[in-house]
Design a protein around this nucleic acid. Structure first.
Length: 305
DNA sequence: ATCCAGGAACTGT
DNA sequence: ACAGTTCATGGA
């Protein structure tokens, strides 16, 4: 991880294969997003580290990323954790040359990379957020998923208002561990989703589920198995979390409806491909299937709202 | 109206 | 192990 602390800002020095503007497109994909805002090419995001709540203004200043602090500066031992969060969020540990090389054998990926070069898997470093956001999104359209997330965040998260804009933190598992199913039903969560989400919160509050213990397992299958042992987490959610939170570049949510739609459009198919066909299509994506998926998702919001 | 959404658990065989 | 059903709601 490379970063420098300056007098009034923090500078992150990303790897060469990175395009801040491409990542901004992803971050701006939903007008209903509540966990960050984009204004004049900068991303504003509230972050809580230990007991410090800090507003970040994140800007691209090629080749660096600059982090400013519109409200107040963090305490000096918090800078490193902020840099770490940003590093993880933009997945800077991956060397995308591997992906670009793997894609040289695949015409479709090559064309996506030509369009979106420098796009990285924008992650969800917080395990509770990653798991519950995935659960929220199960089997509903993305627009409604964002509606539910907004209600959830605005009901149970902390917020801070600065110069007329309100910034939100995702609800903590400590808080959600204490609520009742009915409170989520009132926000139009299904009963089952409410149970899953509260269950995840309680497992984390008990210390039975942590990001560190998942990552300790190193290998793909054991991690996936541990995730799928959680009620509400099937193969799709496990792969989604491995991709977005555990930064496993080969995680592959093969049953994903968006992936199927993107493949159909990119390959000009008459209908969406079956799982067996996707395995054939993805034969050359080895080690980079999360990136292939992410670039395919990107292709779906060419003209988004 | 009917089908599908960035699925998963449950039930019956 | 496998297939069919249920959950619940919004959008096209």
């Amino acid at each position: 991880m490379k970063w420098k602390r300056h007098e009034s800002y923090l500078e992150i020095l990303p790897p060469k294969e990175f395009d801040f503007k491409e990542c901004l497109v992803f971050l701006g994909r939903s007008s209903q997003e509540v966990l960050h805002q984009i204004k004049a090419g900068s991303v504003y995001k509230l972050l809580k580290i230990k007991d410090e709540t800090i507003l970040l203004k994140i800007s691209g200043s090629s080749p660096s990323i600059l982090i400013e602090f519109p409200i107040q500066f963090p305490s000096s031992n918090t800078y490193e954790e902020i840099a770490e969060y940003i590093w993880e969020w933009f997945d800077f540990d991956q060397d995308l040359n591997g992906f670009y090389q793997a894609a040289s054998k695949d015409e479709m990926l090559q064309s996506l990379i030509a369009k979106y070069k420098g796009l990285r898997v924008i992650g969800i470093p917080d395990l509770f957020e990653a798991l519950t956001w995935a659960i929220i999104g199960q089997q509903i359209n993305l627009g409604f998923a964002y509606t539910l997330k907004k209600r959830f965040v605005e009901q149970f998260g902390e917020s801070l208002t600065f110069e007329g804009d309100t910034y939100w933190l995702y609800p903590s598992y400590e808080k959600i561990a204490q609520i009742r199913v009915e409170e989520l039903r009132g926000l139009q969560f299904t009963r089952r989703k409410a149970e899953y989400i509260i269950g995840v919160a309680r497992a984390m509050a008990n210390g039975k589920l942590t990001k560190a213990s998942l990552l300790q397992q190193k290998e793909y299958q054991p991690i996936k198995k541990s995730l799928m042992a959680i009620r509400g987490v099937g193969a799709w959610t496990a792969d989604y979390v491995m991709m977005k939170c555990l930064q496993i570049p080969d995680a592959f949510p093969i049953a994903d409806a968006g992936l199927h739609q993107a493949l159909k459009l990119q390959l000009g198919l008459k209908q969406k491909p079956a799982i067996e066909e996707i395995n054939v299509i993805a034969a050359n994506w080895e080690n980079w299937r999360a990136y292939a998926t992410f670039y395919l998702w990107r292709s779906l919001y060419e003209s988004n709202k």
